[in-house]
């Protein structure tokens, strides 16, 4: 079957590369955004909220069109496909991440702050030793969930000319549609297995964290 397996793997690498870079950017920007979102300033709150809602309301496919085609149309700037994909998934990931971070902080009871301060901890000490560790624990399963969602959503990028694993699969199925009309089942099974190999360890980690959390809560 030619070098189809290698092609699937290289498609998988495209998927993983786009997801990982986007996830990394989302973690950093989302954390900052989350910190901003906990602000008590009403204007800041509304702006963040509007951003989040816009990102959520619009399908990622539309975002891909906007960044890959729309930006070129309006400004002449020409982003490559992968750059556009990373931008889109970062815009989305950062928004979702920001909301998760906000939620994780707001889920921490007020008395955790008060008793930290009562013990004489300075604010930096309080955040470092008490608040961040707890927020992180609330956050991790959700972040991993988000990461797996992002990995799966990268299948959309073929619309802007990127050949990721699912697209490679479609190409293989199509190339063999006359000789092997039933190839689809096997190709999709292989792709399913590849996604599984990436996402399953992530869900396992997430599950382990949740379990540990239940013990210490």
């Amino acid at each position: 079957m030619g070098n189809n397996f290698l092609r699937l793997l290289s498609g998988l690498w495209v998927t993983v590369r786009i997801s990982l870079i986007s996830i990394a950017f989302s973690l950093v920007l989302g954390t900052l955004l989350g910190a901003v979102m906990t602000s008590k300033n009403k204007v800041v709150k509304v702006i963040c909220r509007v951003y989040l809602e816009i990102v959520r309301i619009m399908p990622q496919l539309v975002w891909l069109f906007i960044v890959f085609f729309g930006v070129t149309r309006l400004t002449g700037a020409n982003f490559g496909g992968e750059t556009s994909a990373v931008i889109v998934f970062t815009i989305w990931g950062a928004a979702e991440m920001g909301d998760l971070v906000r939620g994780a902080f707001q889920a921490i009871p007020k008395h955790q702050f008060e008793s930290s301060l009562s013990l004489g901890l300075t604010k930096p000490q309080m955040y470092l030793n008490i608040i961040f560790p707890q927020a992180l624990r609330n956050l991790l399963p959700n972040v991993i969930n988000l990461a797996t969602r992002m990995i799966k959503t990268t299948a959309l990028v073929s619309i802007i000319g990127i050949t990721e694993v699912l697209k490679v699969g479609k190409q293989i199925i199509d190339a063999n549609r006359f000789e092997f009309p039933n190839a689809a089942i096997w190709v999709y099974a292989a792709i399913f297995f590849m996604y599984f190999l990436i996402c399953f360890p992530l869900s396992m980690i997430s599950r382990a964290i949740v379990k540990k959390q239940q013990r210490s809560e």
């Binding site: 479609k170 190409q171 293989i172």
Partner: peptide
Amino acid sequence: FSDKNPFGYVDNDG
């Protein structure tokens, strides 16, 4: 197209 055999597609050798 990269998956519209036989008009535009990618064969098993890529």
